[in-house]
Amino acid sequence: MIESGESASFVCKMEDVLDLYHEPYDEKRPVVCFDESNKELHKEVRDPLPARPGAVARYDYTYERNGTRNLFVMSEPLTGWRHIEVTERRRKEEFVAQMQSLVDDHYPDADCIRVVMDNLNTHQRYAFYEHLPPAEARRLLRKLEFHFTPEHGSWLNMAEIEFSALWTECLDRRIPDAATLRAEVAAWERTRNEDESEIDWQFTADDARIKLRQLYPANHD
């Protein structure tokens, strides 16, 4: 629910992200969508009955909880590239590590990486200075440009589309441990990258002004 007093902030951030999505591709200034989620790990208490002709595999309804792992996703929609990292936690420290990897490992030749993400409290520029020497924090921040989706507007982050595909095609089942989770996610990522599965985003700021006009402040004729 978007409060009336928050509508101007919402549409400002929304139009910023929508304009960014419709800029021409620039390999020196890539647009990367970033998001995070988690996966509960469930071990089987009893061995499942294997599949056989005419019958699918059957699993017991009971299971043993085996912790939770965080999933970071990076996605460049215009090129069909994505990367998923499995971590134990998702603190500011892990966020900074992901941004460092984005700059140094994935886009070392980029002049500026435009990162679309939500307003999670760990997504802070000052976190770089909390966990890195000042010169290193400044080096990374000079190559990163953050674009935040509005509150209640996570649908504007195309990384959510990647997460939806990941859950449907890979994680919609019990995963017993972190090693299996990493292996399954890596296999899914490799296949999807080989297919160069792009995201064709059509919704524009002009569309928003028509279809979401009720969200815009009524402050002029």
Rank of each mutant, 00 (worst) to 15 (best):
I2D: 00
S4W: 13
G5C: 02
G5A: 03
F10L: 10
D16T: 15
D16Q: 14
L18P: 10
P24A: 10
R29T: 08
H42P: 00
V45A: 08
P48F: 00
L49C: 07
P50D: 04
R52E: 13
V56Q: 15
R58N: 05
Y63D: 06
E64S: 05
R65M: 07
L71M: 12
L71C: 09
F72W: 15
G80M: 11
W81H: 12
I84P: 01
E85N: 10
R91Q: 12
F95D: 00
D104Y: 08
D105V: 07
P108H: 01
D109Y: 09
C112R: 15
D118I: 02
L120R: 04
N121F: 08
T122C: 04
H123V: 04
Q124E: 12
H131R: 08
L132V: 04
L132C: 02
L132I: 01
A135R: 07
L141A: 02
K143F: 02
E145Y: 11
S154R: 04
W155C: 09
L156F: 13
M158C: 10
A165F: 15
E169F: 13
R173S: 06
A178D: 09
T180M: 12
R182E: 14
A183I: 10
E184M: 13
V185K: 00
V185H: 01
A187M: 08
T191Q: 09
N193H: 11
E196P: 00
S197A: 15
I199R: 08
A205Q: 10
A205W: 07
D206P: 01
I210C: 06
Q214P: 00
Q214V: 11
Y216F: 12
P217I: 11
